[in-house]
Each structure stands twice: as C-alpha cells, then as structure tokens.
C-alpha cells in the first residue's frame, strides 16, 4: 500500500530539480566581471530549446510507454461508450434462463444462452451466480475505479498546489502549516483511511474524500520547498519590482518548474488509489456491493478462488486491474525520465 508514498522516482526527480535550482555560486563567481564576447552573446541570445517539446520528444521515443498511453486512452473511452454499444446488457440486470425463468448460474465465459425474451446472448466473460454479465460489470467497475483514482489524484494535486503555494509564499502562514504538516504527516494513512471510511456512509464520494485526506500533504510539502527556493530569485524579485501581481509570478514563473513532478505524482497516485479501493473493500468498508467496482468484483472473486471452474470471476477483474496499474506506472516512469532536463540533449 505504502509503496507509492515515498516513491524513488519522485524523490529522484525532485532532487534533480532542486539541484538545478539551487546551484550555489561562490562569492567570487557572483561578483566577477565577465569579458565581453560577441560570439557568446550570439550563442546565448537565441535558443530553440523548449522544455515541453523536448519532454514530449523524449517521451514519444519510449515505445512501450506510448503504447500503454494509447491503451489507457482507449480503455477510458471504451468504459464510457461500452453501455451504448449494440448487444450490451446493463451490468446490474439479472438474466433469466428461458426454460426455467430462474436466474442463470455461473455461465462459463463465451457461452451463448437463450434469455427469457428469446434472444441469444453471448456471455463474453461469463456471468456470476445470479446471471449478471461479468463483461458489463468489469467495464462498469473499471469506470468507477478509474473515476475514483483520477478524482483523488486531481483533488490531491489541486489541494497540494494551493496549500503548497500559500505555505511557501505567505511567510506568516509558514509556522502554522509546518506544525499542521508535522501532525498530519505523523498519522498513518491506513488509520485515517479506515476511520473516515467507517464514520461516513460508504459511497464513491466518501472514498474519494477519505483517500484525498492524506495524499495532498506530500505534494504541498514539495511545492512549498520549491517555492521557498525560487521565490526570492533575482528574476522574481525583478518581476515583483515591476509590479507583476503575485498570482502571475506564481503561475508564470514558479509552477511551470514544478509541473513534471506534479504530473508524475498524479500518474502514480491513480493506481495507488485503485489499490486502496480494493483494500478498503476487503476490510468491508468499501462501496456498496450494488455499485460495480474493481474492488467489489475482486472481493467476490476471491471467495470463489478455490473452485477452478469459477475462478474466471476473479481472474478477469484482476487482469484489468493489473493492466491499469502497470500502464500508469510505466507511463509515469517514462514521463519522469522524459521530464528530467538532464536527459534532454
């Protein structure tokens, strides 16, 4: 669970950004007169280097990451259009056997069954023991789980940036926020997650709230440290002297520096959040089982794992979950490599 909290990649990227920002120059160097050199002026006056273009170029060179990015894009789109495709059954609908009128039981994957309305239906991934279509359930579940993952990542990023900027930029707030951070960072995430998930009624909103409650702290801390380093740089001082509003300094001068780490944190937070959902479901505080989610599907599947003929109900949701996790993980890593200026040649 905690694997993603102090991620090596994040550490490394933050470190390298830090280094590039805080190169310490000696007294001498700072106050040395430079000789005038026409060629040097010519050279440094123009550069076609663009950070984002280079990042994108680097990223697109990583074929696997590109493939997974496209796959994730397609997956997200598909979860939304799947219910509207022809020949789909609502994930919640109980399908009855045309002969007995009773619900179908554990239809094996790929079987074609005649339903009560006379249609022949192919259960691509089989059904559960009351004839609910596993295929539709998996897509509905993926939709829910991805939604939770992305929503939490967004909340964390927004809150983290907001608090981080305030924390770093407004000196008066530094003490309060630092103390607050020291307290919040000391509480094990799992405890907060369990407590909140329990006290509030289980719902998608509750889960998002519980997961967002702790995740933003790390982000805020990082942003704050960066801002403290950058805010008194000469060019920012100059900006302020020229009357540039604070928000503009923050958005134009400060945040672009940090965007790569923010995105990496978000990319890694999504699979972590989906994992948390599975965990919370396991301990019985998850979403109501009537809401399809990967956590619920896996939890139901676990109880059937001992029976080889029904194991498909565990394996398919697990595969989908694994693909999502691996994809975000790989994409995030490839992105962080690409976003590291040191790798731009």
């Amino acid at each position: 669970m905690a694997i993603f909290k102090h991620h090596a990649k994040i550490e490394a990227l933050e470190k390298s950004l830090n280094e590039s920002l805080s190169t310490a120059l000696s007294e001498e160097e700072q106050f040395q007169f430079a000789e005038f050199d026409e060629a040097e002026v010519e050279r440094s006056g123009y550069s076609n280097y663009s950070y984002w273009r280079s990042t994108l170029k680097m990223f697109s060179k990583n074929r696997i990451a590109m493939f997974l990015l496209v796959l994730m894009g397609a997956l997200v789109v598909f979860t939304f259009i799947q219910p509207y495709l022809p020949g789909q059954i609502d994930y919640f609908q109980v399908n009855n056997d045309s002969t007995t009128g009773m619900p179908l039981r554990n239809v094996p994957p790929g079987d074609v069954v005649e339903l009560t309305d006379g249609t022949q239906f192919r259960f691509i991934l089989g059904s559960n023991n009351i004839g609910q279509d596993l295929w539709a359930n998996i897509w509905a579940g993926t939709r829910t789980s991805l939604f939770i993952g992305v929503a939490v990542a967004l909340v964390e990023a927004t809150l983290g940036i907001l608090v981080g900027v305030l924390w770093g930029y407004v000196r008066k707030l530094d003490f309060i926020f630092t103390e607050l951070y020291n307290i919040l960072d000391n509480i094990p995430t799992t405890i907060v997650l369990i407590l909140v998930a329990y006290i509030l009624q289980p719902s998608i909103g509750t889960l998002i709230f519980a997961m967002s409650l702790t995740g933003w702290i790390g982000m805020a801390r990082f942003i704050r440290n960066q801002i403290i380093i950058i805010r008194d740089r000469d060019y920012n001082l100059a900006s302020r002297c020229l009357g540039t509003p604070t928000y503009r300094v923050i958005f134009k001068n400060l945040l672009p520096y940090l965007i790569s780490v923010i995105m990496l944190r978000m990319a890694l937070s999504i699979p972590a959040n989906i994992g948390y959902e599975v965990f919370i479901t396991y301990i019985g505080l998850g979403l109501p089982a009537t809401t399809a989610s990967l956590g619920n599907l896996i939890n139901v599947g676990r109880s059937l794992m001992l029976s080889p003929a029904l194991r498909y109900q565990l394996i398919y949701p697990t595969i989908v979950l694994s693909i999502i996790t691996i994809s975000f993980y790989t994409i995030g890593n490839a992105f962080s490599d690409a976003a590291d200026p040191k790798n731009h040649r």
Binding site: R302, I323, Y329
Partner: peptide, 18 residues
C-alpha cells in the same frame, strides 16, 4: 516488481497460501 505492484495483494496472498 511490476507483478507485485500490479496484482492486488489480496489475490496473490491467497494463491501463496493455497
């Protein structure tokens, strides 16, 4: 590493036990 991170612990723990 990827396997451990991607597959839910709840699933592979059970496999290991069985």
């Amino acid at each position: 590493i990827v396997f451990i991170q991607a597959v839910p612990a709840a699933v592979y723990y059970l496999f290991i036990q069985l």
